[in-house]
């Protein structure tokens, strides 16, 4: 029976499964991305960017499932994600690396009614190439100053019509399209990633690099502070330890009013601070004939 069924499968399908199986064996990392409603030309852009780092295949879920079986992978792990239209990405990068790489380049599209701006939307000064007509009132609504020159709409100065996060005025959409301004970002939505037996849901792939930077900084700072505390013999550390020791010495000297050229400033400051505190404490009752800083 199985043999008979297989004969009915078109040749291209067999070849496609064969190719997918090969890639599943070749690459350690597999990423499934949702391309429902994703513009084909943008997918093409991504494919270009990934050249040499990863391969993208758009194929039927059923064929991918077959390939998983043939490659000896546990298809049950992938099953929940094999719905809708998917692109399959094969790469040697680890899933987080791929995700960071994809996040690095911004894909943009034209605004549609209801969109929010992902970046500042500016109508630039100059000839719009649009014939003067009813469109002038739209420019007026957007508070863009124009004049008509040779029958064309001419914008007088660069005008911001939306800041990042602002809704883009719906009437601006056709103008922006005419001017070739794409203020909305799109990104490939990753459903799941797989590497070496580990399934990582897409939402876990988000990495905030600033957080990592902060953590590295904090870890280093902790280490540095600890090193200072134990006078770990590295010049950079001892510089701070010595400074701390000197400061300790000056504070102690100030406390016992031990006057030397190095400490005189600290000692007097301390005496002054005390004097003003006391003056402040009685300034409400006595006219000391001075200004007490509050």
């Amino acid at each position: 029976m199985a043999v008979v069924t297989q004969h009915k499968i078109p040749k291209w399908k067999i070849e496609e499964v064969e190719e997918l199986t090969q890639k599943l064996k070749e690459y350690p990392t597999i990423v499934i991305a949702n391309i429902e409603g994703f513009p084909a030309d943008k997918l093409h852009d991504i494919r270009k960017k990934l050249r040499g780092k990863a391969e993208i295949k758009v194929t039927k879920n059923s064929l991918f499932e077959l390939a998983l079986k043939k490659a000896g992978l546990d298809e049950s792990k992938f099953k929940p994600y094999l719905t809708g239209s998917n692109a399959y990405i094969f790469t040697n990068m680890n899933p987080f690396e791929l995700h960071l790489f994809l996040a690095k380049f911004k894909l943009k599209r034209y605004a549609m009614p209801g969109d929010k701006a992902d970046e500042e939307v500016v109508i630039p000064a100059g000839d719009t190439g649009m014939p003067a007509g009813p469109i002038l009132s739209t420019f007026g609504k957007l508070k863009v100053k124009t004049k008509v020159q040779d029958g064309k709409v001419y914008v007088l100065q660069d005008t911001v019509i939306a800041k990042p996060g602002d809704p883009i005025p719906p009437e601006a959409a056709p103008i922006l399209q005419k001017l070739g301004i794409m203020p909305v970002y799109i990104k490939l939505s990753i459903k799941v990633a797989y590497e070496g037996g580990v399934i990582i849901p897409g939402e876990q792939l988000e990495i905030n690099l600033d957080e990592y930077k902060d953590e590295v900084m904090k870890a280093h700072f902790n280490a540095f502070s600890l090193a200072v505390e134990i006078a770990y013999p590295e010049p950079e550390v001892l510089k701070v330890t010595a400074q701390k020791a000197a400061r300790n010495a000056i504070s102690l000297a100030a406390e016992i009013a031990y006057i030397t050229p190095e400490t005189v400033q600290a000692v007097i400051s301390k005496a002054m601070t005390k004097a003003y505190a006391l003056a402040g404490a009685i300034s409400g009752k006595v006219d000391l004939g001075i200004q007490v800083p509050q």
Partner: peptide, 9 residues
């Protein structure tokens, strides 16, 4: 010194 000290509070 006094000027600096006064600035402190």
């Amino acid at each position: 010194v006094l000027k600096n000290a006064t600035a402190m509070p």
